[in-house]
Design a binder for these strands. Structure first.
Length: 650
RNA sequence: GCCGCUGUAGCUCAGUGGCAGAGCAGCUGUUUCGUAAACAGCAGGUCGUGGGUUCAAGUCCCACCGGCGGCUCCA
């Protein structure tokens, strides 16, 4: 017989549903004034559910009637408790910290006598399933702080949390032998957790502060159903197949070498992507009135002292000593552009001045943060700084938005999601200027038809920041571009332009990048497209496949004709069967395969197969050229990967 | 940087103190082929690096380097 369920019902409030019998007898008066409500079907003696409507409204509404997202939140939250229960069983001396629900599941942080191993995860998961099978009631209540301190007297992290709570009482949850300090949001029983699995181990600082102890974090996945859990795992497997580090190697685009950690080597094919993207941006710069500049790779530390980067980022810069003077490799372009502006004499007639630069930047990123192409130490950006008069700012911001929208659309990325990052704790400039700039950015975002979410305290040290995020083809969100108003550097550099009044004025300054770092963009875009780049970006745009050796010469003629139009074409002369050549081209994500045999040679044609695997039939060579040139010049988005992509390798 | 895991052929991986292996890729030869993998042979190794334990180390221990998963950071 299960133990009765305790509910701290407010004086026996009746259940709301018709058709339920309400047994309001206080079966287990565990806490003074607490009532237990047991629900049974009419005519049945089987206890179906208990309901509690206490001060915390924990089980005010039956779990099954909650909105789906609230149910999922509670399942994940309760799963964290069940995980902690399992860990405490395995390690009675464990100190447990916090365990919230998170996207895709939950985690719990522990201070344990030894590191956990993957085998431990298996054992813990088994223990969790026991708790689920026991289907224990989860009870919650508010208890006085003094009592909580007593309950958790051997739990330093819980005690610290208790001290941080301002109320006189704290939330206290139990199921079985397990008890936790918790603000609530739980299932009614441990049997309601849905489909879960322990996922991975990680380290995490207590309270997210690197000055604090490193705890062991156990991550779990949890979804309402096994189907959804499997679907999530399938998505993750797809992400692995698309991983740019893997595709970069398989498609021979780039690699990273221990000889220079975090600094990509672009192979010939990767360099095509890099240069095509720059060409694309240059074309837009001409259209949008940007001027490209090239500034030094290295500056005296004085420059970075002036800009403020020295104070904020010196440890993350590559510093050098030259002739007993301190120099640094530039980690960003803005100080150099300010130096360029300062060197000239600009009047209001020269503004807005939009300085763009693609030169390489170096940042000494901490070793643990490096990640493929998305977090590197050496990179270049489609970077620009716009100097303008105060009354030009709004127009300039809108123009950046318009340009960004166009670029993301042309690349097939859809509409970005906007975040507005405001003044951080350490900042340059003065607060009134910050307030104005934050309002101006927010207003501009709305005026161009976007909503934004606020990211308080996440701005750059010199000004508030708009971030452009987008979701890729498998639902992951990435930040690409940014737009910032600088409320510090023009003043710090003493920048001046001559106004119509003949007086000197401080210009406004905007920072903006749309692709962001080219390295990161290429990494993200490789994953978004799974390597199926649009034709204009594809490193090899077509492979000519001769059926037999006697067709090689004609294949070369076809290649020449296409190359004359600037198309990037290869001939597969290998001693392989056609099927193998097709397969190889397909695995290399080549957009077009041009098969040539006797029939095609006769007709000055090629049998065309596109990257989706569709057979387009034989087409005259001139028609193939027209088609490809059109597709390239219109920057058409790739139609989509083949329905059944083959696995590379064995 | 911190915590954990990890490092064997170009790639993916096997090798639990006793002769360093497989598949794919590569090279050579045969085959000359009609839309996703022809056949045969050959070659390929400082087992991340440096110390240590041992008669003996890819295997055990220590340090360092790189990578992976997180945390922190991200101009």
């Amino acid at each position: 017989m299960q133990e009765p369920w305790l509910c701290s019902s407010p004086r026996g409030a009746p259940p709301r549903e018709a058709g339920w019998n309400h047994v309001s007898a206080p079966l287990v008066p565990r806490d003074a004034g607490a009532f237990v409500c047991v629900l049974v079907r009419p005519g049945s003696s089987r206890v179906l559910r208990c309901e509690r409507t206490g001060e915390m409204n924990e089980h005010d509404t039956p779990f099954d009637e909650l909105p789906a997202d609230e149910r999922l939140f509670r399942m994940r939250h309760s799963a964290a408790h069940v995980l902690a229960e399992a860990v405490l069983e395995m390690f009675p001396e464990a100190k447990y910290a916090i365990g919230p629900p998170v996207e895709n599941g939950f985690y719990y942080d522990f201070d344990l006598p030894r590191p956990l191993t993957p085998d431990d995860l298996v054992a813990l998961e088994a223990r969790m399933r026991v708790s689920v099978a026991r289907d224990l009631p989860i009870r919650g209540e508010q208890i006085p702080k003094a009592r909580a301190r007593e309950v958790f007297k051997d739990q330093p992290y819980k005690l610290e949390l208790i001290e941080g709570i301002e109320d006189e009482t704290v939330g206290y949850f139990r199921h079985g032998e397990f008890q936790d300090l918790c603000r609530g949001g739980h299932t009614e029983r441990t049997g309601q957790l849905g489909a879960f699995a322990l996922d991975r181990l990680a380290g995490a600082y207590w309270r997210g502060d690197e000055k604090n102890a490193m705890l062991q974090r156990v991550y779990g996945l949890l979804f309402p159903s096994t189907g959804e859990l499997d679907a999530y795992r399938a998505t993750r497997a797809e992400a692995e197949r698309r991983d740019h580090r893997r595709l970069g190697r398989e498609l021979d685009l780039f690699h990273l070498d221990p000889i220079s950690p975090g600094s990509p080597f672009f192979h010939p094919k990767g360099a095509v992507l890099y240069n095509e993207l720059i060409d694309y941006m240059r074309g837009l710069y001409r259209e949008y009135g940007y001027d490209e500049v090239i500034t030094p790779q290295m500056f005296s530390a004085d420059l970075f002292k002036t800009s403020g980067h020295y104070d904020n980022f010196k440890d993350d810069m590559y510093m050098l000593e030259i002739d007993e003077q301190e120099f640094g490799l530039k980690p960003m372009n803005c100080p150099g552009h300010c130096a360029l502006f300062r060197s000239g004499h600009y009047s209001y007639r020269d503004l807005p001045l939009r300085l763009a630069e693609f030169t390489r930047l170096h940042r000494n990123e901490r070793s643990g943060v490096l990640h493929g192409m998305t977090r590197v130490r050496s990179f270049s950006q489609d970077d620009s700084h716009i100097y303008c008069t105060p009354d030009q700012v709004e127009h300039e911001i809108r123009a950046v938005f318009e340009m960004a929208r166009r670029i993301y659309e042309e690349l097939g990325l859809g509409l970005p999601v906007i975040r507005l990052a405001t003044r951080p704790e350490r900042f340059a400039g003065n607060i009134p200027d910050w307030d104005v700039a934050e309002r101006q950015l927010g207003d501009s975002v709305r005026s161009v038809g976007y909503e934004y979410t606020l990211a308080p305290g996440e701005g750059a040290f010199y000004g508030p920041k708009v971030e452009f995020h987008f979701r890729d083809a498998i639902g992951r969100s990435w930040q690409l571009g940014t737009l910032q108003i600088d409320v510090a550097m023009p003043t710090r550099f003493g920048l001046q332009y001559t106004g119509a009044d003949g007086e000197g004025h401080t210009p406004m300054m905007l920072h903006r990048a749309i692709l962001g770092s080219l390295e990161r963009f290429i990494g993200v875009y490789t994953e978004h497209t799974a390597g199926h780049f649009p034709l204009w970006l594809a490193p090899v745009q077509a492979v000519v496949v001769p059926i037999a050796d006697r067709h090689v010469e004609y294949a070369h003629r076809v290649r020449s004709l296409l190359r004359e139009r600037g198309l990037r074409i290869q001939v597969d002369e290998s001693n392989e069967r056609m099927g193998a050549k097709i397969r190889r081209a397909q695995l290399q994500r080549v957009p077009y395969m041009l098969v040539v045999g006797d029939r095609e040679q006769e007709a000055e044609a090629a049998a065309v197969r596109d990257g989706t695997g569709a057979d387009l039939g034989a087409m005259p060579v001139f028609q193939i050229i027209d088609r490809m040139v059109d597709e390239r010049d219109s920057r058409a988005i790739y139609a989509g990967p083949p329905a059944h992509p083959p696995e590379a390798g064995a």
